[in-house]
Design a protein around this nucleic acid. Structure first.
Lengths: 254, 254
DNA sequence: AGTACATTGCGTCATAATAACACATTTAAA
DNA sequence: TTTAAATGTGTTATTATGACGCAATGTACT
């Protein structure tokens, strides 16, 4: 932090006051659903990557910037899911000591001390295509298994939980693998992705039938190599049909 | 407006800057899905009821206040669904002329002229229990059929559409009638509610079977009186089971 | 009073989706 | 060569869904 944050505080008239963005960036690797977390060295707790909103940018655009800053990619699945604004949510986060440390004027510093409402976005990214990028030299950026996320700052744990909850619901409304898996993948991998998100075992054969019937998969004439046991077939998504289902939704219900 | 808005502007340090709340309040009557809209006389366009966020209130609490101000009820279904923050969303809404009219100092007035990000909430209320209440003497509050909503200010039409879209999706995830219908209701009424929200005809007999199987209805030993044709049976919700389904969700999907 | 008509209540039947499970095949490792 | 673990491809019973049929009820009209 520091230089960048100091710049923002001193030019706070260029940013939307009292409003921030936090991103829950999901990736899938080693059969684990991972979350990209950051740590500012000075601080002992991990947090979600976030940022402020330039007054001349749409909030969605600002969210893309946050994502892009940390992952170096864009054109990815990024979706707003909730806004958090409890009165005390960022009490005791930044205080006078921080402002003193940053050497900003008291008047300017007040901008940072008030209640910040934060808009939560979640992103689905291809783990292998991302190189976690600290946005400055003191920042640590890491993928952490969602089951082993340590204590986070402020209400970030609540934000993460809500994102995961949203993801679970969306799983019933749309396909999601395209954003989280590599170009080619196996059926067990896709199933494991679903199982990990839902935290629930699924029957292998029933899963195959159901996911196949959606009509978004292409079975490739190729098997995964260098694997223990029988080599599983490779699949890829039929992007055109995938997008169609994304648009129209899965379960019509009524 | 006016007195109240002027007060807010002059005491803007008591409100979250650049942030507002807009409520899409749904009611059901005469087989129509209605939306509660307001009109400030000076202005020719209708708008969603909204408000600002006191710095010492949670955003959810502020939303309850907005709802309560216009309907006089609380303890109702109220849910945040999205946050809107395009850069130009409130350009040309309030301008210098308004501030002049309100006779507020220019410095204070600037608070109102910047981009406001608005948090959208939607509410489901029992039409008959609500008495639309103007929050001041110049305000007009009215129920308007969602199919006949005229042009609205700013991006309020977009906000309304998004709320309706969310409601349609939620219909597949949870039951909703409890909040929109009176204590006792008929099966055709409940079905019409679903048809109106979904904008789609449903088969009467299949609807009965499906809604009954959810297990949230109590068939009363009573028929609706004063109706043309055969008197339909009355139903009410089994609140305990209803809440259980609300919590656990309808379609498990996977 | 008698009849037409709209609406309700309670079904059926064919088809599709889902849950539970069986068995042969492939491959690495013992 | 055998074993164990995983994959590929089924079957069967049950349940859910979509598309209808028909008698009963009550209003409105002649």
């Amino acid at each position: 932090m520091s230089k960048m944050l100091k710049d923002i505080i001193e030019n706070n008239q260029n940013y939307q006051p009292g409003l921030s963005i936090d991103c829950v960036i999901f990736g899938f690797h080693d059969n684990q659903l991972k979350v990209l977390l950051i740590k500012v060295q000075r601080n002992s707790k991990w947090s979600l990557p976030g940022g402020f909103i330039p007054i001349d940018e749409d909030i969605d655009t600002a969210a893309v910037t946050v994502l892009n800053d940390r992952t170096g990619v864009d054109g990815i699945f990024l979706r707003q899911f909730a806004t958090f604004g409890k009165v005390n949510r960022n009490d005791q986060h930044f205080d006078e000591k921080v402002l003193e440390y940053l050497q900003v004027e008291e008047a300017k510093g007040k901008w940072l001390l008030r209640r910040f409402v934060t808009i939560g976005y979640y992103a689905l990214v291809d783990f292998l295509k991302i190189i976690p990028k600290p946005s400055n030299e003191n920042e640590i950026v890491e993928w952490i298994d969602h089951k082993e996320v340590p204590e986070l700052i402020l209400d970030h744990k609540e934000i993460l939980e809500k994102a995961l909850d949203t993801l679970r619901t969306e799983l019933n409304l749309m396909p999601i693998g395209y954003n989280l898996l590599p170009e080619k993948f196996t059926m067990p991998e896709l199933q494991k992705l679903y199982e990990t998100i839902l935290d629930k075992k699924l029957d292998r054969r029933n899963f195959l039938r159901k996911i196949t019937n959606i009509g978004i998969l292409k079975k490739l004439d190729e098997k995964k190599s260098n694997v223990a046991h029988k080599a599983p077939n490779l699949y890829s998504f039929d992007k055109e049909k995938y997008d169609e289902v994304l648009k129209n939704g899965l379960n019509q219900g009524w």
